[in-house]
Nucleic acid binder design. Sequence first.
DNA 1: AGCATAAATAATAA
DNA 2: TTATTATTTATGCT
Lengths: 217, 217
Amino acid sequence: EDQDMLADSPNQPTISQSSSNVVDGINLEDIKEFAKAFKLRRLGLGLTQTQVGQALSVTEGPAYSQSAICSALASQMLAAQLSSQQQNIFEKLDITPKSAQKIKPVLERWMKEAEERSRLDFDGRDNLHNRYASGQNHLTDFIGMEPSKKRKRRTSFTPQALELLNAHFERNTHPSGTEITGLAHQLGYEREVIRIWFCNKRQALKNTVRMMSKGMV
Amino acid sequence: EDQDMLADSPNQPTISQSSSNVVDGINLEDIKEFAKAFKLRRLGLGLTQTQVGQALSVTEGPAYSQSAICSALASQMLAAQLSSQQQNIFEKLDITPKSAQKIKPVLERWMKEAEERSRLDFDGRDNLHNRYASGQNHLTDFIGMEPSKKRKRRTSFTPQALELLNAHFERNTHPSGTEITGLAHQLGYEREVIRIWFCNKRQALKNTVRMMSKGMV
DNA sequence: AGCATAAATAATAA
DNA sequence: TTATTATTTATGCT
C-alpha cells in the first residue's frame, strides 16, 4: 500500500539512523521529537492541555475534542504544534457542556484584546490583521489569560463532616456516585467537593503506605 | 436502590469497636502508628517537612518532590483519622521548628537509621512488616476488593513492566494472543489488562501520527 | 513560618 | 471518551 510518506522520505530521518525504530511505517524517534517539541511549545505559551484541545476542536473540527483527546495524544508521546491556522478561536465555539464554562474567562480576555487590537489597527496600521489571516499568531494570543482563572475557594470541612467522611472512608474508599451524592446532600457540600475529598484521601493513604514500604519508620 | 449504609449509622462515633480497622487490606492502626512514629522522628531530628522531602528526593530519586508530597503523606492520615476520639497521644506537638540545620549531616543520620530499621525488619517480625520492608507489595495488594461491577480499578504498572511492554511494542504493535498471554503471565498482570494496554498504546501512536500529518508540526 | 490538605493539572487505564 | 490515578500548587489555619 501507500503508507509511507512517513517512512520513505521524511524530513530527513536525522536522528534515527542508528536503530531503525520504525513501527508500522512510523518512525518512533520522529514521534518522540515531535512530542517533545509540542510540549515545550505548549508550556512556553503557558497553556494547559485542555485549552489546547479546545482550541483545536474549534479550528480542526471534531477530530480533537477537548482535554481527553488532547491528553491522550498530546501527552503520551505527544503532540502537535498546532501551528496551522487558527484564527478566531472564539468564533464558533460550540464546545462541549461544562468545559465551555472553563474557557469563558479566556474568551473574554481574548475578545478584549481583540478589541484593543482593532483600535490599534485603526491608527496604528500594523499588520495585525494580516497576522490573523496568515494564521501566524495562534495560541500566542492566549498568553496572559492566566490571571483571570480563579481558583475555587478552599472549603473547610466541619469536624462533624470530617468524622462522617472518615467513617465512610474506613468502610469504603471508593464510594459509588450515589453514595457521594448522598453524602454531599447530607452534609451540605457540593458533590464535587466530596468526590475530590475521597480522591485526596485515597492518595494520602497510598502515600503513607508507600512510605511504610520504604522502611522509613 | 441500595443507598443506605448512610441511613444506618450517621453520627455514631462507631470508631473501631471492632479491632479490625482494615480498609482495602490496610490496617489503619498500623498506618496511624507509622504516622505518629514518623512525625516524632522528624521532629526529633529537628527537621521540617521540606527538608525531609528534599532529603528523600536525593536518596530516593525524584519520586518525592519536596514538601508537597512529604507532607501530603506523612501527616494527614493521623490528624484526620485519630481525631475521632481516642488518642491525643501525640496530639499537637508541632513543636519547635528550631531546626535550621544543615541538611547534609542530618541526612546521613537519617539514612543510617533508615537502613538500620530495614535490617531489623528483615529478620523477624510478622509478615506484614516483611511485606512492607520488601517494598514489593504495592498498591495492588490493598486495592483489592469491592464486589460491585463498577469500572475496573485502574491498575498501576510498575516501571519495569512498562519498560518491557514498551520494548515489546516497539518490536510489534500487534502481539498475538499467545504473546499477550505470555506477557501477562511474565509480568503478573491479567491478560485483559495487557491486551488493553496495547490497544491504548496503538491508539496513542495513531493519534500522534494523525496530528503530525495534519501539518501541526 | 510551617503544616495540613483542598483544588488544579497531567497522565493514562478502562 | 470517560473516569481514576499521579503530581503539583496554593490556601486556610495555627
